[in-house]
Deep mutational scan, measured.
Amino acid sequence: HFTSQQLQELEATFQRNRYPDMSTREEIAVWTNLTEARVRVWFKNRRAKWR
């Protein structure tokens, strides 16, 4: 589960860029205190939901 702060950060990034690269995902991981893998999976799932 994600905190509302984490989701806000993830959503804001998603609005700007639906396909963040590795370095962007790592930055998000640092800001949100999540692993890069969790961030990558979140984006994958979010893109699926967005379609």
Rank of each mutant, 00 (worst) to 15 (best):
L34N: 06
E26G: 07
T13Y: 15
M22V: 08
E11F: 04
Q8V: 10
A29M: 03
F14S: 01
R40H: 07
E26L: 14
I28T: 02
R16D: 06
E26K: 14
R47S: 02
N45M: 14
Q6F: 13
R16Q: 11
A37T: 09
A37P: 11
R47Q: 06
Q6S: 04
W31N: 15
T24Q: 14
N45W: 15
W50M: 09
H1Q: 13
T24A: 12
S23G: 09
T3W: 05
A12T: 09
S4V: 13
V41G: 10
Y19C: 14
A37R: 11
N17K: 04
N17H: 07
R47I: 06
E26I: 14
R38K: 13
L34H: 03
A12R: 13
S23C: 09
E11W: 05
R16L: 10
N17D: 07
T3G: 04
S23V: 12
R46W: 05
T13P: 01
R16N: 09
R38Q: 15
T24V: 08
R40T: 06
R38D: 15
Q8Y: 11
N17C: 13
R47L: 08
N17L: 07
R25I: 14
E27L: 15
Q15N: 08
L10K: 00
Q15W: 08
P20S: 02
M22D: 04
Q15D: 07
V30Q: 13
A12Q: 10
R18I: 05
V30F: 13
W50Y: 08
M22C: 09
Y19Q: 05
K44M: 11
A48C: 10
A29C: 05
Q5F: 14
F43S: 00
I28W: 02
T24Y: 07
L7A: 06
T24G: 05
Q8S: 10
H1T: 11
Q5E: 12
R16H: 10
E26V: 14
F14Q: 01
N33E: 08
A48Y: 09
R38E: 15
S4A: 13
T24S: 08
R16W: 10
H1P: 13
N45L: 13
R47K: 02
W50C: 09
Q5V: 10
F2C: 07
R25V: 09
A12I: 10
L10H: 02
A48E: 10
W42E: 00
K49V: 12
E36K: 03
I28S: 00
E9Q: 15
K49E: 14
Q6W: 05
Q5A: 12
S4E: 13
N45Q: 13
M22K: 15
K49L: 12
E11Q: 03
T24I: 08
F2D: 02
A48V: 09
W31H: 14
E9V: 15
K44L: 08
W42Y: 03
V41S: 12
P20I: 02
T3F: 04
N45E: 14
T32C: 12
E11R: 03
T3A: 04
V39I: 09
A37Y: 13
R16Y: 09
N17Y: 06
F14E: 03
N45Y: 13
